[in-house]
Amino acid sequence: MTQENISGAAPSLARLVQELNRLPGIGPKSAQRLAYYIIRLPDDEAYALADAVTSVKQNIVFCEECQNLTDASPCQVCSDPRRDQTIICVVEEPLDVLAMERTRSFRGLYHVLHGVISPINGIGPDQLKLKELFSRLARPDLVEMVVATNPTLEGEATAMYIRRHQGRDDLKITHLARGLPVGGSLEYSDETTLSRAFLGRQEI
């Protein structure tokens, strides 16, 4: 949206609408609604929002180890001596780290790829944090790598690429179990999920 599209609005307001309109999922009407909402906010709340945006852009960096987004490098997880240094979990996005941490069942280290191999969208191995991963894998104390990419076509392709290029014979490489989600149903499961769930059946 250009400033001409919202003639009658003050230039500073038009600029705010224009900037909000750039955000994913925000159309022109939503951008206008958000802009007018921000104008009606108390001063301290509006400035806090502006400060949060500025601060995140000034302070967030990639962790030199795991490539996760952090305020200080190395990040809290990488610099925590209580974490298991022998196991590394490879995930697609920073949000996946949060999801894994919520489970409280993994106490090792992470590596964030920041995407998956997606040739159709022009994303190849060089656009991901794979070079950094392969250099971390050279550490001799590392015993296991859990490739926790999403069980999608591109996630699986990325997992295969990592396995093919990791370059160590003595590293245990695993991926997360495939199967039925809690609350799911057999009737609506696809054949791949169901057959993998069957293969991974457990004694009860």
């Binding site: 040739p119 159709i120 076509l153 699986e156 392709a157 054949e191 057959s195």
Partner: peptide
């Protein structure tokens, strides 16, 4: 699903070929 091509999806080169066809 009528045909999942599950064997194709177990092989990286085959997936890359499938993506080439899809594009």
């Amino acid at each position: 699903v009528i045909e999942g091509f599950s064997k194709l999806k177990e092989n990286l080169t085959a997936i890359a070929k499938g993506q080439y066809l899809a594009e």
